[in-house]
């Protein structure tokens, strides 16, 4: 499927599911390719969660780095049926919690409350060692920090360092190596 076809499909999916399912959808993700695995509402949630975990600052965030599509592709190409179910369930649990706490799906909730909601949710999920959520967050981090913007704009990456310098000065502004 060409990128144009994917965009066309995404548009039709959005029309079909309508505004009711995704609320007032943040269409930022529509700049990327249509999801191959996740349903449109789940993809919209993943898109929002990714952007909340690693937002755009002075460097691109997870959304700009293509994390939602990367994770959707991993769900299609890498994850076993068991992993797919676990990760989908983790998105659904997050969705249920946001509907209960915020009265709306996360992408449709008032922007001001989304980050605080996710901060609480994240702390509680990690405290109870929620495997699905933790894996989801790990995938967000991995696909961000190993993306080209994550590795080369937020952090640093040299494919061919050519040298080994074992003990060089570092300051508060020194960026970590992505790999």
């Amino acid at each position: 499927m060409s990128p144009l076809d994917r965009r066309a499909l995404l548009k039709s999916v959005l029309v079909l599911v309508g505004a009711a399912a995704v609320g007032a959808p943040d269409l930022a993700f529509a700049q990327g390719a249509a999801p191959r695995f996740l349903s449109a509402p789940r993809f919209a949630l993943l898109d929002e969660v990714s952007a909340l975990i690693i937002p755009k600052t002075d460097t691109p965030g997870a959304r700009e780095a293509g994390v939602p599509n990367a994770i959707d592709s991993l769900l299609a190409d890498w994850a076993s049926a068991e992993t797919q179910q676990r990760l989908v369930a983790s998105l659904d649990a997050l969705d249920a919690e946001s509907r209960a706490k915020l009265g709306a799906p996360l992408p449709a909730a008032p922007a001001a409350g989304r980050l605080a909601f996710l901060r609480d949710y994240d702390a509680a999920a990690i405290a109870r060692q929620d495997r699905g959520y933790m894996q989801l967050k790990q995938l967000v981090m991995m696909t961000y920090y190993l993306s080209e913007p994550g590795a080369t704009e937020e952090l640093r990456y040299e494919h061919v360092p050519g040298v080994w310098e074992p003990w060089i000065p570092a300051g508060p502004d020194t960026r970590a190596w992505a790999v």
């Binding site: 909340l52 975990i53 937002p55 600052t57 980050l115 996710l118 901060r119 994240d122 702390a123 990690i126 405290a127 933790m134 967050k137 790990q138 981090m141 920090y145 952090l155 970590a176 190596w177 992505a178 790999v179």
Partner: peptide, 13 residues
């Protein structure tokens, strides 16, 4: 590197 945050709480900027 960033992998130290893989199991740590925290979100946002």
């Amino acid at each position: 590197n960033w992998r130290r945050g893989m199991n740590s709480p925290g979100v946002g900027a």
